[in-house]
Amino acid sequence: MTHILLLDDEANILTALRRLLRDEGWQVDTFTDAESAIDALQSTAYSVIVSDYKMPVMDGVTFLQFARQRQPDAIRLMLSGHGDRQSMINAINRAEIYRFLSKPWEEYEIQAAIRSAVDLYQVTLENRQLLDQVKRQNDLLRQREEELLRLEHDNPGITRVRRDQDGSIVINDVL
């Protein structure tokens, strides 16, 4: 199940966003304060985390920075009412956000941005899994090689088994 976290201090913004994401089949969790959103980060693994920029108590950059420490794989997006340059620079550098979403928004912007964030999350996850798999297989290979070397060392020639035309093992009684 894909989990999405939405944080905005205004409940009506959250319901409007939820409506746009209704058909996607995601589990969408909404929060009006950073504190309870942070609590949720403890118990649920999110694919995408969206936060408003301007909020009382804790601003969006700080929250997303926090979210990044807790769940580094989740893709972070920021919702912002004003294109203030410094706040964007902060957001990109400090919270490493993936996209900016502006207020007011077009429905397809939100849907496309979150969809591609979900995709990115899945690709990243898959990548990681494949990498793990490759690593595991490499380890296995190395172990086998070492085992062979050891065998060869203890019993020279044992790893170079000869076969005759019909495939059966030729046992040379050396001694």
């Binding site: 205004e10 009506n12 913004i13 319901t15 409007a16 966003l17 409506r19 746009l20 009412g81 207020k103 007011p104 928004w105 429905e107 939100i110």
Partner: peptide, 8 residues
């Protein structure tokens, strides 16, 4: 904010 969600 209000324009944002009303528009949406």
């Amino acid at each position: 904010n209000p324009v944002g969600y009303v528009y949406s």
